[in-house]
């Protein structure tokens, strides 16, 4: 991946998150503290404002720098969680990029998110989208498959009961709503697939 490609990709991801801020906030108001959209918007606006500097770096370092912006600017738990995802991916970024090596790096980034959030699959979180996407990626799925996997996985959080994060305070009342973190993860995966297709 070259600099201009990376710039377009990070910009596309950021713009999608920023454009869906109200939707993410609405989802979070249903089962959380209602700040996911505004927090993610603030974080990705900081990424966009620093885009030239970030994308002047090699890909791995650029991902780490974008992650650091999210850590410092988001202002909720999603800052360290998405920050860790981007920094983890940057840290694990392969020297020779192919689908297998990307899947491995993405898996390492997801492991870092699990450790940061002390969370696992099935707790109605962003991991419930990221993990199936990584599995599809590792299985050699094409962009359409990965995009579909993310969409199905986000929808699958609707009947789940949250056992992690603010939504877990609601117990059974968290059932019937899509997890906002799962939705933001799906939006990001979707933006990456569209930018690459």
């Amino acid at each position: 991946m070259t600099g201009p490609d990376l710039k377009a990709l990070i910009e596309a991801v950021s713009n999608v998150v920023i454009a869906h801020a109200d939707e993410l906030t609405d989802l979070d108001q249903a089962i959380g503290d209602g700040d996911h959209g505004v927090n993610m918007k603030r974080g990705f606006e900081a990424v966009v404002s620093d885009l030239d500097q970030i994308t002047a770096k090699p890909v791995g370092e650029a991902l780490k720098a974008a992650g650091m912006q999210l850590v410092m600017k988001v202002g909720g738990a999603s800052g360290p969680l998405y920050g860790t995802l981007f920094m983890g991916l940057g840290k694990a970024w392969p020297e020779t990029l192919d689908q297998t090596s990307l899947a491995t790096a993405f898996g390492e980034a997801i492991d870092a998110v699990k450790a940061r959030g002390k969370s696992e699959a099935g707790q109605k979180t962003m991991l419930d989208v990221l993990i199936p996407v990584q599995v599809a990626l590792a299985a050699g799925g094409d962009l359409d498959t990965i995009c579909d996997t993310a969409e199905t996985a986000a929808a699958a959080t609707i009947p789940m009961q949250a056992t992690k994060g603010r939504a877990s305070f609601l117990g059974e009342r968290s059932v019937g709503h899509m997890d906002p973190g799962a939705r933001s993860s799906q939006l990001i995966i979707n933006a990456v697939c569209e930018a690459l297709s």
Binding site: D35, N39, V74, G79
Partner: peptide, 12 residues
């Protein structure tokens, strides 16, 4: 408070 002064926390 978050970086904009709303409810939240701020690593910095």
């Amino acid at each position: 408070g978050d970086p904009d002064g709303g409810l939240g926390t701020d690593v910095g």
